[in-house]
Design a protein around this nucleic acid. Structure first.
Lengths: 139, 139
DNA sequence: ATTTTGAATGAAACTAAATTTCATTTAGAT
DNA sequence: ATCTAAATGAAATTTAGTTTCATTCAAAAT
């Protein structure tokens, strides 16, 4: 993977086998994944330890390659920033995570400082409910 | 506290000393608190164990007396539902949590099902940034 | 191409939040 | 006042995440 090499050089960090694996997986998966989930996913694909996964995700977050997200279950997940700003729909039944690109909230960030003197630097919006498949008769 | 007695009877649950203490504390504190934080807070005020705090908050959540919230730090917090639907401003510097009552998002819940067939039952919106005191020169 | 060196890695130990177990206590019905 | 199922709490356990430290490796220097 040369793309990974490029990206890592770009942020002034060493290009190791493990970092390439993690970067590739995050782009492949294209959804929020926990360190442990990623570790399981990668265990077959190469030599990699749990610690490295945790540490690398932390590094990637600092370097803005990934975004840290926490849903109601309290587990820390990471998602590639290449997917752009978006919000999530999390199915309470099957757990599947959907993305919505349109964000009507960004304009709020600006209003808030006028109203409250609180300077918003980022916001998180998650919707919980039931996806098409799990909806059943629910209205 | 008779109010607590009433509330607990209302949900068909036993009115124990511990449950009353927790209920009272949640109303007093009027902000999202973790089980451990609550445990510390209550330790002086009466005989109560960690386990009971955890279990009672879980019960209260099921009975809709409290709402479970998770911020970026991954710690599970609970907040009295008597405070009504609102969103949070969390200061990245001092950690203080502010509430905003106005919610422009609720109308979105309805749009989403039309767009995506996903039935939204609840949403969470948190803003991170810097409060008036911690803002300094930041724009 | 080989050497060098500081950074990266991973196994294992550790920490902290949350959960489970089980003997004891208690609320509230009888 | 007695009885019983539910609630409690101390301690053990689980789980996600972090720290430690000896070993390995990327890439800079030679």
């Amino acid at each position: 993977m040369d793309r990974a090499n490029e990206l890592l050089r770009g942020i002034g960090e060493k290009c190791t086998e493990q970092r390439k694996l993690i970067l590739k997986a995050l782009l492949e998966l294209a959804r929020p994944v926990s360190a442990d989930e990623l570790y399981m996913y990668l265990s077959g694909k190469g030599r990699i330890g749990r610690t490295t996964v945790y540490r690398t995700l932390e590094l990637f977050e600092q370097k803005k390659l990934v975004k840290r997200i926490i849903f109601k279950d309290g587990i820390i997940r990471y998602e590639s920033t290449h997917l752009g700003h978006h919000h999530h729909l999390i199915c309470l039944s099957c757990g599947k995570v959907f993305s919505i690109k349109k964000c009507a909230i960004s304009s709020l960030d600006g209003f808030i400082i006028e109203d409250t003197d609180f300077l918003v630097t980022e916001h998180f919006l998650e919707f919980y409910g039931f996806c098409e498949k799990c909806r059943g008769d629910r209205v």
